[in-house]
């Protein structure tokens, strides 16, 4: 069982874009420790010869024809936006670059 440090949890929170207080990080790293200990059991039977299953019911090649269907009206598209301007979603300044 691998130990998970508070720093690791902080990094996970950063990846997951969730601000966390020190108290939250402390609490969560303790819980993660316990949960990971329990779920690590999967490794006992997951041998190399077992293929992974990602879809419970195997289906292939589900596609749609390349046909345009009406979009939402811009009003509907923007209806849930916390802020909008010039028919666009208005968001706080984007600092990073992808």
């Amino acid at each position: 069982m691998s130990a998970i440090s508070r720093e690791e949890v902080a990094n996970l929170a950063r990846l997951a874009r969730i601000e966390m207080s020190d108290a939250e990080l402390d609490h969560l790293s303790g819980e993660m420790q316990v949960i990971l200990g329990a779920v690590a059991r999967v490794q006992e039977v997951a041998s190399a010869d077992v293929p992974p299953t990602s879809h419970p019911i195997p289906v292939n090649n589900v596609v749609r024809e390349d046909v345009v269907i009406p979009s939402l009206s811009p009003t509907d598209a923007l209806s849930g936006a916390p802020a909008s301007s010039e028919q666009r979603f208005k968001v706080p300044q984007i600092l990073g670059e992808a």
Binding site: A77, R88, F89, K90, V91, P92, Q93, I94
Partner: peptide
């Protein structure tokens, strides 16, 4: 990007 006050998104 730097110095912008806000951003507007068109999807």
């Amino acid at each position: 990007i730097h110095g912008a006050e806000y951003s507007l998104l068109d999807y």
